[in-house]
Simulated assay, not measured.
Amino acid sequence: MEAFSEYLTRIDNPGHRDRTEEILAWITNKFPTLEPLIKWNTPMFSDHGTFIIGLSTSKQHISVSPEEAVMARFADDIARAGYSATKGLFRIPWNEPVHYELLEKMIEFNMLDKADCSTFWRK
């Protein structure tokens, strides 16, 4: 979690900071082989140098960005979870539960799908 400490200190709302830290810690503990990093002022995780998932915070929600291919594959699951989405991210409102099973499926898919990927982003 050290990689995210400076980012977390910049979140003014203590509840938002705690929630963000909780999600980042869950990913770190569930997927210990992923590398935590900050790029473009955004906490994210990579695997062998390729992007797996990123998070960003706003006043109303935390955004989860797993890349468009993952968003398309899990669009129905995201909708069933009640999250609003674009083609590149979905939003978890601060007052809504985090569907960790969905996060887990998305991360596992990305890790498997990008196992042979040699670039940070999909081509």
Rank of each mutant, 00 (worst) to 15 (best):
Ser56Val: 12
Tyr83Leu: 07
Pro14Glu: 11
Ala72His: 09
Ile27Ala: 03
Thr50Ala: 14
Pro66Gln: 05
Glu22His: 14
Asp18Lys: 09
Phe120Asn: 02
Leu112Thr: 11
Lys39Gln: 04
Asp47Lys: 09
Leu89Gln: 08
Lys30Arg: 13
Ala79Glu: 06
Val70Phe: 05
Thr119Glu: 02
His61Cys: 13
Ala3Lys: 01
Asp77Gln: 11
Glu104Ser: 13
Glu96Ser: 15
Ile11Gln: 00
Ser46Thr: 15
Pro43Gly: 12
Ser46Ala: 15
Asn95Leu: 10
Ala69Cys: 12
Phe51Leu: 04
Gly49Tyr: 07
Ala69Pro: 14
Ser63Trp: 12
Ala69Asp: 13
Glu6Gln: 09
Arg80Pro: 01
Tyr83Pro: 14
Phe31Val: 06
Phe74Ser: 05
Gly49Arg: 00
Glu35Ala: 12
Tyr7Ala: 13
Glu22Gln: 15
Asp116Trp: 00
Glu6Asp: 07
Arg80Gln: 08
Met111Ser: 02
Thr28Cys: 04
Ile11Leu: 04
Ile78Met: 02
Thr33Val: 15
Trp121Ile: 09
Ala81Ile: 08
Cys117Pro: 01
Phe109Ser: 05
Ser5Cys: 06
Trp26Tyr: 12
Pro66Gly: 14
Ser118Tyr: 02
Thr42Met: 08
Arg73Gly: 12
His61Met: 09
Phe4Leu: 00
Tyr7His: 10
Phe51His: 11
Gly82Pro: 02
Thr33Gln: 03
Gly54Val: 11
Glu68Pro: 08
Phe45Cys: 12
Thr28Lys: 00
Arg122Pro: 02
Phe31Gln: 02
Tyr7Val: 10
Arg17Ile: 07
His16Gly: 09
Arg10Met: 10
Glu21Met: 11
Met71Asp: 01
His99Pro: 07
Glu68Asn: 08
Phe31Asn: 00
Glu21Leu: 13
Leu55Ser: 07
Gly15Tyr: 00
Thr119Ile: 05
Ile11Phe: 00
Thr42Ser: 12
His61Glu: 07
Asp76His: 09
Lys39Gly: 09
Pro66Phe: 11
Lys87Ser: 15
Ala3Gly: 00
Lys39Tyr: 01
Ile11Met: 01
Arg17Ala: 11
Lys114Pro: 01
Asp18His: 08
Thr20Lys: 01
Ser46Ile: 13
Pro36Trp: 03
Pro93Arg: 07
Arg17Glu: 07
Thr9His: 02
Ala115Phe: 05
Leu34Ile: 11
Pro43Arg: 05
Leu34Ser: 11
Ser118Arg: 13
Trp121Pro: 04
Arg10Cys: 11
Phe90Pro: 06
Leu89Pro: 00
Asn13Val: 12
Phe120Leu: 10
Asn13Arg: 05
Phe74Val: 05
Glu68Gln: 08
Phe90Met: 03
Glu68Lys: 12
Ala79Asn: 08
Leu102Ser: 06
Trp26Glu: 03
Ser65Thr: 13
Thr57Lys: 03
Phe120His: 02
Arg73Tyr: 13
Leu55Gly: 10
Gly54Lys: 03
Met44Lys: 08
Leu34Phe: 06
Tyr100Glu: 02
Ser84Asn: 07
Ser63Gly: 15
Ile38Phe: 04
Asp76Lys: 13
Glu104Asn: 04
Cys117Thr: 14
Leu34Asn: 10
Thr57Ala: 12
Asn110Glu: 10
Met1Ala: 13
Ile52Tyr: 01
Val70Glu: 04
Ser118Ala: 14
